[in-house]
Design a protein around this nucleic acid. Structure first.
Lengths: 240, 240
DNA sequence: GTGGAATAGTTGTCTATACCAGTTGTGTAA
DNA sequence: TTACACAACTGGTATAGACAACTATTCCAC
């Protein structure tokens, strides 16, 4: 498990080892991990090297140290990661509402120039274009159009696109979203907007355009949403 | 400067020492700091102890290491902290525009119930109520009303409220803002909004309400802003 | 029972040392 | 002058060992 002759530093190997133990459920949430001296003994490495590995995991939020007691496993990263990530599903759930959606269309089309730029792919590359009405507690809240490069999520079909997309990619493709950029704009409902959302022409609407990025800074999706301003208010917390 | 018999760990003393050198301008931005071996020699401590101090400062964002070259001083914490914190001034500067503001009124009034709740103070406690027109490159962008508990910033006057508030509290009161919560809503300009912002009745506007918190989670200010939607778009990046 | 000492376990701090790996300037050979 | 080698610096990795500070448990005296 630990290869002293590898060019990969020992402390980094140990980090990966401990992370895996957590992923695989061998080390459970809130459980103590083996002591520094145990790790040192087990892998025949110095305690300071063990400390370096554990320190890194602590600052990455995987572990918590307690003097005199031991080192403990934190809650899973995944649960933390989607916090405040504002997928519609997460957003509504956190407001105590029940989200659902109606699929309006599901297409694979060559991407236009502007969207290609945003997704950092070539013009005319294939993208999924998914249009949905988003509902909360059964009433329409938003009209949403998502663009996703086919190359990133080859297996997407009408059926599984109906689930929360984020959940789908987390669980089936072991990718995860690490960053998102949003632009929020106020506007006035056009007659088409008004019709699909059940409001009146000229009513205020919120236009939200979100680009989500994977860990490697690869753009994953572009989502354009039109929210009813009478029902939806964008809430958002910034730290540090 | 370093007291080996102090109960305060040496690495922590060194951290404070280096931080001070940065604060006092002895170590300048982008400059190299003395090498680990130099610090060790100068204070007669082990290089590993020096590394522990420097590691902490690196993860706190004060320093950056570069293998083979040295360790460098980052931009001041203050400048980083307000990044994305969306004070109007910072926001406009980051868009390459020149921000200014016109003070409409500056009052000290007893706070109403709802605002008191948001600021976690008692009803009728004194608050500053500051109304301003915010301009970018000379044209009106937003109407802004800020509420700040007098108890938190006793010395505020019409004169210094005209500066960037954030800068004022950072520099004169050594408080700093660590978190902010925003609610963003679309609406339609009333005749009064339209008049002050120079737009037409019925035009779309963005209503932004922000509560900023200090490090200790004490609410610091409540700001209600009305932005022209034709000129302003709220942009925002979420990480992790 | 309660309080306190002894004990064995944990992480925290610190030292001294060694070698590796990347960067930069300098001096020498082509 | 140019190109390369080398030396002298930087931070990065790793070891072994010591003692301090803190926690939990056990056991004994009161």
């Amino acid at each position: 498990m630990i290869n002293k002759n590898s060019p990969v530093p020992i402390y980094h190997q140990l980090e990966e080892y401990i992370k895996q133990q957590i992923e695989n459920g061998i080390l459970l949430e809130d459980a103590v991990i083996p002591s520094e001296r145990e790790f040192a003994e087990k892998f025949q490495i110095s305690r300071m090297t063990v400390r370096q590995a554990i320190n890194n995991l602590v600052s990455e939020g995987y572990l918590t140290r307690q003097k005199g007691r031991g080192t403990f496993v934190n809650k899973k990263k995944v649960e933390q990661e989607l916090q405040g990530m504002t997928s519609f599903t997460e957003d509504m759930l956190s407001r105590g509402m029940s989200p659902s959606s109606t699929l309006l269309s599901f297409q694979i089309i060559p991407v236009d120039k502007k969207t290609a730029l945003n997704l950092r792919i070539n013009e005319n590359d294939s993208v999924y274009k998914i249009k949905r009405i988003r509902l909360a507690d059964g009433t329409p809240m938003a009209l949403e159009t998502a663009y996703i490069p086919v190359s990133l999520v080859p297996g997407l079909t009408e059926a599984n696109s109906n689930l929360s997309l984020y959940q789908y990619i987390e669980e089936h493709l072991s990718l995860s979203i690490s960053e998102a950029r949003q632009e929020i704009e106020a506007s006035i409902a056009s007659s088409r907007d008004a019709e699909t959302l059940g409001i009146t022409l000229g009513d205020p609407i919120l236009l939200i355009e979100r680009i989500s990025y994977l860990q490697n800074e690869v753009p994953f999706e572009l989502v354009k949403s039109t929210f009813r301003a009478d029902r939806y208010r964008f809430v958002h917390t910034m730290k540090r």
